[in-house]
């Protein structure tokens, strides 16, 4: 369905960007993105996905809002004690009146995931689930004031193949904001095909300097099995 007059007005600047157009914006509107993992990049990722015009976001975060939870970007002291997922749903709806934001419910069928894990193990487990479900996903790892974002199109080298240890610094809100925004941008490029750059890649940002590299499959990794070849049910 073509964009409405209101939608054209809302996304007018983005519609002018190279590679973007009405078809790209319609793809974003039709996307159903599950944002999960409970990490510091969650709120910024939601904000930028909403601002880009993603139509549906399902948020999965059952932890309570605490002063140190890093959601200060989105939530205030009045939210402390609430379930962070529910509070972030309200934040998403505030960020864009065009967004349908809801808590993630088991059995829902997203078209893509943004994984903002609170630890590498959490990210790895969710990314593996996404790979087995054959869903494109982007993983945001916060490491100090930087971190890394790994983009995993369907059938490409998995998150475990593409990732490597970072500095291991304590995550900060600044790092969460940077990685969340970058993860949202990577997913937008993945969903719309607005870039000719290889999409299976990892962007590492340390001390403000980005390093971009294509990911490669590691020998013996499970992602090289039938699922990667599109043979799994």
């Amino acid at each position: 369905m073509a964009l409405s007059e209101t939608e054209v007005a809302r996304w007018s600047r983005q519609l002018l960007l190279p590679g973007m157009g009405e078809a790209s914006q319609e793809l974003l509107r039709g996307a159903r993105v599950r944002v999960t993992g409970g990490g510091l990049a969650t709120a910024p990722a939601i904000y930028y996905l909403a601002a880009a015009g993603v139509g549906t976001i399902w948020i999965e975060d059952s932890d309570p809002v605490t002063p140190g939870c890093g959601a200060g970007f989105a939530l205030g002291p009045e939210d402390e004690g609430r379930a962070k997922g529910a509070a972030l749903v309200e934040f998403g709806r505030w960020a864009s009146g065009f967004l349908a934001a809801d808590p993630y419910r088991a059995g829902s069928r997203p078209t893509a995931l943004v994984v903002c894990g609170s630890s590498l193990d959490v990210s790895r487990a969710i990314a593996d689930e996404a790979r087995l479900l054959r869903l494109p996903h982007v993983v945001a790892d916060v490491d100090g004031q930087g971190g890394a974002v790994t983009t995993v199109p369907v059938g490409s080298p998995c998150y475990s193949c593409g990732s490597r240890p970072g500095l291991g610094a304590a995550p900060t809100a600044e790092g969460g904001a940077a990685m969340g925004a970058l993860a949202a941008l990577e997913l937008v490029l993945l969903l719309t095909g607005a870039s000719t750059e290889p999409r299976a890649r990892r962007i590492e940002v340390f001390r403000g300097t980005p390093l971009v590299r294509a990911t490669a499959r590691q020998a013996g990794c499970a992602c090289a099995g039938p699922a990667a070849a599109g043979l799994a049910p």
Binding site: A2, V8, A9, S12, L15, L16, G21, E22, A23
Partner: peptide, 14 residues
């Protein structure tokens, strides 16, 4: 601007 060019660009794309 920029709605003028946005609308023209969308119309051209169709």
């Amino acid at each position: 601007c920029p709605i003028t060019w946005v609308k023209a660009r969308i119309a051209l794309s169709r």
